[in-house]
Design a protein around this nucleic acid. Structure first.
Lengths: 230, 230
DNA sequence: GCAAAAGTGTTGGCCGTACACCCATGA
DNA sequence: TCATGGGTGTACGGCCAACACTTTTGC
């Protein structure tokens, strides 16, 4: 082994997670209430330190498993945050990621952690510890641009969904309103959803078509050109 | 300090740099010929380990200063590479960055390093050590998308430049050909370059206008919609 | 005057926005 | 049959790709 190797101390390596959940037409983020200093009793993003043999993906899954009880998520690396004073305990570099989950598919652990973990709507995020407010801000921005060229809804919606439900997701993430008829055309042109043939029953009005994501899609990228009316 | 803190060994943290240079209408990348194992006598991206008190930007500047003799660059964080076996010497996580320089503004160090550092045109990159081929590939991709919404040319061209020179840069980075007249209109509409009033002299044909980048630009983002003819 | 490159203008087609109309359902 | 939301179609306008013409320079 190279003699230069591992002879000086390294900064610690951590991962912080922005966990987006979509539920009842509202986009939320999972926050952790800290029981220890620093930022005791304050809210932060869930996170953890990287062990020697772990990959980044494995750390993310471990954090989700132990703190929230789920794993195997859609995961995207966001950015590395390296300000020397970002953690008052010492030098920690954090490689932030974000994930998308459908809260209805999982029960957020109801045990000892129940009071420590909470969903916050993205427009009601409290002041966060460390530099996590900035991390959250960047994750929101990334998600907004990602949804325009990648079928993000896969992870956030149920197996089947109506066009209106899909539109509500886009309006929520992009924080704009979209013309119903133009949205339909653009999404269908993009080609990543398919008609299932069945319809959603039990509504007051006309039963809308149910769609599903096209999992066999070759080209997983497109260019949506979505804009607000007026 | 938290007792949990720093009690386990951390992976090493490194930075690898994709240094893009534009010279004589050709886009190149700076590669390093390794004198030591692993990959002795092979080509790799310049890189280095993060010291305890350094920021990522400082590491990048240190690498550039010691290996190439310049610093204070346009710098953008690319991605973190974490495959456990990516470095045969041990566990190293690399936070890759890319930079843009105008080779004419600097003299690449001519001293002891002269034989170790070399420009390679982007379409003639040899097999690289570690996972650097993948890092290079991602950097190229990022640059291609970045140039469509950010005035990248700042760093790669001279203080003043002609419209044709700017177009050649775009054609080179995007690897397409662009209609001369449509390119002019789009770039001018984007609003990030200004007429200097002077013209480039000494050419065989009509002397073209010289432009400069608008450094006082408030809105530093736009949306270029550049496409190949036919 | 000629060749070559640079500056300026024009047009036709396509796409995206805006908007209208009918359909299905529950009460 | 009425209210409400869902499915489908259309037309106008703006923008962009394609292309033509003039201007300037060296020889």
């Amino acid at each position: 082994m190279n003699p230069e190797f591992h002879t000086y101390k390294n900064p610690s390596l951590a991962v912080d997670l922005v966990v987006f959940g979509y539920h009842r037409q509202s986009l939320s983020v999972l926050l952790l209430n800290r029981k220890d200093a620093p930022f005791k009793d304050g809210w932060t993003l869930p996170g953890g330190f990287l062990q020697m043999e772990e990959t980044l993906q494995q750390v993310c899954n471990r954090i989700m498993r132990t703190k929230i009880g789920i794993e195997n998520l859609y995961l995207e690396q966001l950015y590395s945050f390296d300000a020397p004073q970002r953690d008052p305990r010492g030098r920690v570099i954090s490689i932030a990621h974000y994930t998308l989950i459908n809260p209805e598919r999982f029960e957020i652990i109801a045990g000892k952690m129940a009071n420590d973990v909470q969903w916050f709507p993205v427009n009601q995020i409290p002041e966060l510890g460390f530099d996590h407010t900035e991390i959250f801000r960047q994750a929101s921005q990334r998600l907004k641009s990602k949804i325009l060229y990648h079928p993000v809804g896969f992870e956030l919606l149920d197996e089947t969904f109506t066009m209106t439900e899909l539109q509500a997701l886009y309006e929520c993430i992009l924080d704009i309103s979209i013309d119903r008829r133009n949205f339909r055309r653009k999404i269908l042109d993009a080609g990543f959803i398919l008609l299932t043939g069945s319809k959603r029953e039990g509504l007051k009005n006309r039963h809308p078509d149910l769609y599903k994501f096209n999992k066999d899609l070759k080209q997983n990228s497109f260019q949506l050109n979505i804009s607000s009316p007026q």
